[in-house]
């Protein structure tokens, strides 16, 4: 079962200079706030896609839901 620590590590490894705060009460539904300079000049859809891409195929599966907020530093 994925953990918030695992999601945090994977987001930060995949998106340059990202800093992620990930929470979960049940390790199935997650909530993440991700800050990265890579998000500059990108639409929210593009920003969220970058995070979704990290978990390609897992969303809706063992990561049942990922509530997401993306920000530029």
């Amino acid at each position: 079962m994925p953990t918030p620590q695992e999601l945090k590590r994977r987001i930060e490894a995949a998106i340059p200079n990202a800093s992620a705060d990930v929470e979960s009460a049940d390790n199935v539904h997650f909530s993440a706030r991700v800050v990265s300079p890579e998000f500059v000049a990108k639409s929210r859809v593009q920003q969220h896609r970058m995070v979704y891409d990290v978990f390609d195929g897992q969303l809706g599966g063992d990561i049942h839901a990922l509530q997401l907020r993306t920000e530029v530093p």
Binding site: V45, H48, Y52, A65
Partner: peptide, 16 residues
């Protein structure tokens, strides 16, 4: 290219 539901489109563009 968006994995989750719901999806809102305005004037043909995915808004989120």
């Amino acid at each position: 290219g968006w994995p989750t539901i719901p999806q809102l489109f305005v004037k043909g563009e995915l808004v989120g």
